[in-house]
């Protein structure tokens, strides 16, 4: 029965494989090598299958969405029509402000705004392999120009950052991941703080944490928008992260911390936008 055991007792195999693992850990830690040839194998075997399964899953979920009644559709249509009116009203106002802004920016020669970052859409084809971390795989990779540290957004908010790129897939670490830290600032006061993902608060109340906010005048209240800061080394400035939900004084009476509700819907993430521009840090 014990085929391999005939020529190699299990304790030796255990020792040999442990040593192999530890050596792999050290080499990948020291050199940053991540097994490129093997990854490309994975690339050709797993990713096409994952894309196919994801497609099937989407078809099923769409057909379950088809079952809305006529009344629901009419009500929804009315609501959306109202929204269209409101939004077109807002749009005219914004256009006016935009032209004003353009002229002022020309005066200050600040031509770059974050709205003109080039983006590319991608499908989420697989979730991370464990319940502890929030990573996911998208169906675009280095062949489409994706690079490590590109920012990923969805439904108007920051979702995460690309941590690993294959030929036609990329792995994204989301901002709600417990090991994620983003340098952010409050939109109205431009005070910096650190937003870190937290598995515990995310499971409890769908929030992530922020800390180290210096706000001596107490200007920040719940509902304040939190955006990525201009001093972040990886994130492009001005991307909306979420809204402040709770805020409390730290024990040192100097800084404040609290929770943020992220804008992006992490439970139903299907399509994301990758910003095709890396943050320039002058390094």
């Amino acid at each position: 029965m014990n085929r391999k055991g005939n020529f190699l007792p299990s304790k030796y195999l255990l020792i040999i494989l442990s040593v192999v693992c530890i050596m792999l850990l050290f080499t990948s830690y020291a050199t940053g090598y991540s097994g490129e040839p093997f990854r490309s194998i994975a690339n050709y075997i797993f990713v096409p299958m994952q894309e196919g399964l994801d497609y099937v899953g989407n078809v099923i979920s769409i057909s379950s969405n088809d079952t809305k009644t006529k009344e629901q559709l009419i009500a929804e249509n009315e609501r959306l029509q109202q929204q269209v009116d409101e939004l077109s009203n807002q749009l005219t106002q914004t256009r006016l402000q935009q032209s004003e802004l353009d002229t002022l920016q020309e005066l200050y020669s600040l031509s770059q705004t974050y709205s003109d970052y080039k983006t590319t859409g991608a499908h989420v084809i697989a979730k991370g392999t464990s319940n502890w971390f929030n990573t996911f795989t998208i169906d675009k990779g280095s062949a489409d120009g994706i690079k490590v540290n590109m920012n990923v957004i969805a439904s108007g908010g920051l979702v995460g950052i690309v941590t690993e790129v294959g030929k036609n897939y990329a792995i994204v670490q989301s901002i709600i991941d417990d090991t994620s830290n983003v340098s952010t600032m409050m939109l109205s006061t431009s005070d910096n703080c650190i937003t870190s993902g937290n598995l515990e608060t995310m499971t409890d109340s769908g929030c992530i944490k922020f800390s180290g906010l210096s706000d001596p005048d107490g200007k920040i209240n719940a509902g304040e928008s939190v955006v990525t800061s201009n001093i972040s080394s990886k994130y492009i400035p001005g991307l909306l992260v979420g809204y402040v939900t709770t805020i409390t004084d730290d024990g040192n009476n100097l800084t404040k911390s609290g929770t943020i509700t992220p804008v992006a819907d992490f439970k139903h993430l299907q399509d994301v936008l990758v910003i095709m521009q890396l943050k320039e840090t002058g390094k």
Partner: peptide, 23 residues
């Protein structure tokens, strides 16, 4: 022996897709 071999294979597949250190 085979539990270890299969475990090692499963772990390596996870390593390739998890983005942490290999091994």
């Amino acid at each position: 022996t085979q539990g270890m071999s299969v475990g090692f294979a499963c772990g390596i597949v996870l390593d390739f897709f998890s983005g942490y250190y290999l091994g």
